[in-house]
Design a protein around this nucleic acid. Structure first.
Lengths: 158, 158
DNA sequence: GTAATTATACTCGGATAATGAGTGTCCGAGTAATCGGGG
DNA sequence: CCCCGATTACTCGGACACTCATTATCCGAGTATAATTAC
């Protein structure tokens, strides 16, 4: 079980965008250059974020991406789901349907107690991710690394 | 991000083993037939469980697998880790090392606040899984599906 | 000088290959039960 | 009848192919800017 690397890229990139004026769009090329990432592939991730309504895209010169809503209204979970998709890590294939004494009418994704246990854990994971907003991360970084906002802002404007 | 199907197989199989006398070994062939699974591949998963010390294996006639310790001492997390490996889903590649103002001496898997957020979520997930033991699942199933233990036991003995 | 028009360069967006983990299969090493023979 | 030894059949264990999601890349559609021309 391994999470896509794109999640890390998206999280860092979105956080970087919080330090820019809201009306300024940044093209993929600059966002990628910031961490020496392959621009075309980061673009793919940004597309996913755009489809999820987390960022908005503008084509043409002076175009690029910007946050579609305020950092307070973007959770870490939002970004993870946008990249990884909405499905849980554990996908019950309903083994019990193949076992003895199975009822074909029952949806074992609901009834199976193992499924329920895995689902509970997944919910706990999501709850933790949903509790963190971009704004919260931004504030924490500003407190712990005061130089970061200035560095980021100037690098992305250049 | 998708969990290996082997986790589901391993969980169901271990749970089935709780309904057999502790001194009885069951060969992979029977464990696999119970859910119409490919025996050789289930065997691979059982090997992982054996390496993790969750089940013990016995070769030769009348051999097979049995639980290596009591169901009270086996958590769902133990089984998940045995199959999926100990690593977290989110693997920080330390993007910040490639960014401006990076300190080469810093381990950003520790320092990066995004890593920390993802790590907290992972810990919550693991905590939830560690709270469930095989004995607990066994008891819940016995209460909700009283016929299950008998069915399982007889099918695996046959 | 101003406004309309054309040309241009830059952006995203989706369609198309390459890679690696996960999936599935096979055969060999080792062991316990079984069968046969001898005491 | 009991004991010992060789045989046999059965088990796990790791080594070997295959599939598909993830990763990575490229080129085309569309747009705002900038230059050009006419008035």
């Amino acid at each position: 079980m391994r999470m896509s690397e794109g999640v890390e890229w998206a999280l860092h990139t979105c956080l970087n965008l919080t330090w820019l004026p809201g009306d300024q769009a940044v093209p993929t090329a600059k966002l990628a250059a910031f961490y020496a990432l392959p621009a075309a592939y980061l673009n793919k991730q940004m597309q996913a974020l755009a489809r999820a309504g987390i960022v908005s895209s503008t084509p043409g010169p002076r175009g690029g991406f910007r946050l579609a809503r305020s950092p307070e209204q973007i959770t870490v979970l939002d970004i993870v789901v946008a990249i990884e998709g909405p499905d849980e890590a554990f996908r019950c294939v309903q083994l019990l349907k193949q076992g003895p004494g199975a009822d074909p009418a029952v949806d074992y994704r609901q009834a199976c107690l193992i499924s329920q246990a895995m689902h509970r854990a997944d919910m706990a994971w999501r709850r933790e991710l949903a509790a963190q907003t971009l704004a919260g991360l931004k504030a924490d970084v500003e407190q712990q690394y005061p130089a970061a906002p200035g560095n980021t802002s100037s690098a992305l404007r250049a």
